[in-house]
Design a protein around this nucleic acid. Structure first.
Lengths: 339, 339
DNA sequence: TTGTACGCGTTATCAC
DNA sequence: GTGATAACGCGTACAA
């Protein structure tokens, strides 16, 4: 006696079990006040019909779904996959399901508005809360349950997970200095990214700490792509007094540096030391393998989940900014400065 | 927890713009019959209020969401990430959004029922259709738009994407034979996986082709884990007449073989040749780097998306089974048989 | 061109 | 303990 609609509804269950929809709903949600035999009968029917409550309808009415949302800008860059792995690990046995949303439309140019739209999309009932990765929009709906990972803007109004970018950059410079380098080039990250700014500040702080004077000519603009790494390397190495080491704001850019170095006939690390930031998996497959600063992207994803769940359970901590430590990963792309 | 008035609805938009909800809805969906000034005014309000239609409500009503669903069992194993990368690439500029769903609950033990439940979940309005990765359930809702990647069961009733597992296994054996190996061990994949069976059949076909008699003692059970690879290696190599090469049903298992070989003091590839299947990224980081059969997991994901979109546009091809070619990837884990 | 009324599948509220 | 009914936010005939 199924209605014309293909999807079977709670009405079908109720009818088949000979009860009302409200009773069926009660059984579905394991409410207390329902007689054992009724319960059993309805459960049986649910199993037989292989019925599942529509998430759409359920969330529309009840406002709580036991589903967490994750908003990512795209699914190609491995960085996001590392985040997802961390989120996936944290979600295990958490009692929550996970819904990852990404858009295939080029509307992404308007990143900020895209984010706001999709946060609204997920928050408006589909999920209990959501995590946004690398958001550029500084602010969101007031009352949504939101946690942010590696935000672009600085002033966080929502709980944010960030790496210790400043300290990590200092670590990188320290290491290069310990190898004897004094002229250390720096390739900037995306100009709007807070993490990029922090790394630049750390670079300067590291130089200062070593008593090396900052030199603007050794700094190139960038945007986290490998293309900018290549361009910057050509620029830096063709200077009259080129650097003996290059610190790129992220691994992707550092990979570009490696490519350019090869094209220029420079041996890494003998002629040029290169260090990156992020520790994405590909850094283990470059030639030479890239020395970098690990920012445990996975841990950031896991922490994001934990923060969100705390928030949902009203155990929200007063702290807004949560940092994940960075660490130096020494591989093969840095070497002692040639005398 | 969340105040009722928090989410702004189409009513708020209508009220603010001084029109009726239906007019607002028309503007939202870019319907033709609405006066330019009304359109502009409503658009303005929508922007001001930063309004987004609730996916839940919308999908419940309209049955078409421009969203594709992807159902994955978990988010830790890299195999699924490779699929997601392919799906993510195919979704770009497709006009569709993507919604990945996974569950954090241990209910996954009951895989088949979990899948059915969640297919229903996604199909019941949230998405226009969905892709299921490695499903164990042989059958689904009749009229849902479903595409399946690497299914466990053989008899596909829905469009399926599979690798040429049989041919790939033959390629692997061919290669080992060309290196002079005659005693080739095989470690089975998960017993219910169709792909595993196909690889085993290919193994036997390859032996047959080379005129080598099949020997049951050289075959071990397995389940696609690295643990089974280790156990099987101990078993195989402690035989009176051990194999000179081992073909593992997937890379994860082959990695277990590598570990066991090291523990046993066997040098790979000098003492033992090892070949895997899948070509997951980690195979480039093992020592030695693993020779394997590439099954272009990403391409399988992309093809899945293309098939699903075709289906949604009623351009469904008659063909149900779609194969993606495998290819031999020679790295460092296989060598000539010692004389 | 615009507004009214209804239904999508569910849960909460209130009767019984 | 159980059943009827009113929302939830939206799209769409149909009426105006």
């Amino acid at each position: 006696m199924r209605s014309k609609q293909s999807t079977i509804t709670i009405h079908d269950v109720a009818k088949a079990a000979g009860v009302s929809v409200s009773t069926a709903s009660r059984v579905l949600n394991n409410k207390a006040d329902v007689s054992p035999e009724t319960y059993k009968k309805v459960r049986q029917v649910i199993d037989d019909l292989n019925y599942t409550a529509s998430l759409a309808a359920k969330s529309m009415r009840s406002r709580t779904t036991n589903v967490l949302g994750l908003l990512v800008p795209e699914l190609i860059e491995v960085y996001y996959h590392e985040v997802i792995k961390g989120v996936g690990a944290a979600i295990e046995n958490s009692g929550y399901d996970l819904l990852i949303y990404t858009s295939g439309s080029p509307t992404r140019n308007k990143r900020a508005s895209w984010e706001r739209e999709h946060v609204a999309l997920l928050s408006s009932g589909l999920t209990d809360g959501c995590i946004i990765v690398s958001p550029s929009a500084p602010t969101f709906q007031q009352n949504a349950n939101i946690v942010v990972i590696d935000p672009h803007g600085a002033g966080a109004e929502v709980p944010s997970v960030v790496a210790t970018n400043h300290e990590g950059a200092i670590q990188a410079v320290d290491y290069l200095v310990s190898l004897g380098h004094r002229r250390i080039g720096f390739i900037q990250g995306h100009p709007t990214a807070w993490s990029a700014l922090q790394r630049f500040e750390g670079y300067k702080a590291g130089l200062d700490k070593a008593g090396i004077e900052f030199e603007a000519a050794l700094v190139c603009d960038g945007d986290f792509t490998s293309a900018c790494g290549k361009a910057a390397t050509y620029h830096l190495m063709n200077q009259p007094n080129p650097p003996s080491a290059i610190f790129a704001a992220n691994d992707r850019t550092a990979i570009g540096v490696l490519e350019a170095a090869q094209e220029l006939g420079l041996n890494v690390p003998q002629d040029l030391s290169v260090i990156g930031f992020d520790n994405i998996p590909e850094t283990m497959q470059t030639t030479p393998r890239l020395t970098t600063i690990d920012q445990s992207i996975r841990e950031m994803g896991s922490l994001g989940v934990r923060l969100l769940i705390e928030m949902l359970q009203n155990r929200e901590s007063a702290q807004l900014l949560h940092t994940v430590p960075t660490s130096l990963v020494i591989r093969d792309s840095c070497w002692m400065r040639k005398q």
